[in-house]
Structures are given as structure tokens and as C-alpha cells.
Amino acid sequence: MRLSQVSFRYSRRGPWILEDVELALRPGSVVEVTGRNGAGKSTLLRLLAGFVPPTRGSVSGRPRVVGYAPDVFPTGQPFTVSAYLAHMTRVRGASPAAAGDLARRLNAVHLLDLPLGDLSKGSAQKVGLIQSLLGPPDLLILDEPFAGLDEQTRAELPAVIGEIAARGGIVVVSDHQNQLREFPGADHCLVADRAVTVHPAARPAEQDPGPGSEPDPGPGSERDTEWVLGRPAEPDPDPGSGSGSGAGLGSGSGSERDAGRAAGQGPATDRRAVIEVLVDPDEADEVEQKLRADGYTARRIL
């Protein structure tokens, strides 16, 4: 599947949301889409899913069976969970047993007899995931799928995503919480400034670098390109200690700084700022994840 020179705006005189986006999604790929609120993540997902046509450019090679789970599942519908899923199963022409199997897997059997309107956010999210997996999809688009999920489902979802990818499906996940940062082989996509920057999947050596052993991709690598395209500079108050936690591509690493210098950006210290943020200990994980999802390096100083 390929997006070629895709630009999009919602009205003729409206601002461009995305401009000249080039994106190729190969079968079996898993792509995590991150970016600030309002950056255009949902618009990118809508273009990928085919809900709207691009204003300019083209989208080609979209798989026929598409699954989509919205960020907020619409519970304002007059059905029980089982009646709703039965309708969606029939519309998709899926196996009648598919919804039940998925409900068991995502720990949602106890929800089947409940009206949609009685569901909590996390339970509704499960129903949205189940309907998106009926098919099964060759292109699965999940908009913030981890929000509100219980631990068991949160742990199961990456396995489901991996299975779809393993059978040649494409999975695109808008993931503000960066839950897929450790997902093996996942590409990362940053939506910012009307552009989409692709961070290819981390190589095995990059996934778990030891202290002081960060890989340096060298000039001309993909990561050089990311830097040149304007990735945020990394605030690292202690450059000598390595990047510490979150060494995946989505959270950046010291090697990007090195690559930036190699690409002629000048001393990285000229473009850095350190912001100290004091948060409640219970919220620390969430804030750290959000910052990383937005492309910044966040470090916990206890």
C-alpha cells in the first residue's frame, strides 16, 4: 500500500493538514503513528482507511478488508454488545463464531449481554477492537487502542497485532501512550508540521543497547534523514550516561544527536533546552509516555 504525494485539507480554503506525504506500507508491517494533538494523526488514519480521498496525490494498493477501531467507541447505539457484534459479523460476512472467539480472547465474554450504553470506556474499547478484528482484516487501523484497557487485554493486543502482521496484514496504530515502542519490528511514524516522518523498525542491535553502547548509524542512514527533517533536539542533561530507558526509535537516542552533528546541524547543545516538570508520582509514567510519544526524550530524576 502506498501514499504518493498525498496532501489533504478538509475544505477548499482550509489549512493543509498533510502535505506531500510519501508512505509505503509493506504487507506484514506494523506502524505506530505518533504526534502531538492536532498534528494530523487521525487524518492520516482516515486517508489510510479510505474514509476520505486525498485532496492531492493518490493512495494505491489498499487491501480490500479493512478493520477500524475508533479512539472512542460509539456506545450511543440501541443494541446489546452481542446484537451489535452479530450485525457487524453479518455486514462483514464473517464467521458467526468469530465474535465469540474474539470476545473470549479479549476477556469480553461477560459484556456480551450488556447494552452498549452501559459499557465503561475500557469495555467499549474492547467491543471496538472486536468488531475491527472480524473479517479478519488485511489492513487494521487502530486509533488509540490501549486507552482504558485492562492489563490482560493490554498484554493480549500486541499478540493479536503480531498475528495479523504474521499473515501478511498491515497494522497501523495511533498510539499516544507509546505502548508499541517495544514491539519487535514495528516502524514508527511521526506526524508533525504537515509531514509524516518514518522511523524504520529498530534493528536487533538497536533494540536493547547497553549503557554507553548506542549504535551510531552513520551518515546517510535513515536516522540521519530523520534528523535533517527536523526531529526535536534531545534534552539530555547527562550525555555521558547514555539514553537510559526507552532506547527504541520512538523515544530517540544519543545516536540521533551524533547523526545530527554528522549531518551538519552544528553542535547539538545549541538547540537543546531542559524543562523540569514536577508531577504526581502516580502520573509520572503517563506523562513520560506522552512526552516520548511526542518525540521528546524524557528522563525520570528521582
Partner: peptide
């Protein structure tokens, strides 16, 4: 959001 789901379905 359901219209979008229905479109894919």
C-alpha cells in the same frame, strides 16, 4: 464514529 466503522465493514 459508527459511520466510519460501517464504511470499513
Amino acid at each position: 464514529a459508527q459511520r466510519l466503522v460501517s464504511m470499513t465493514a
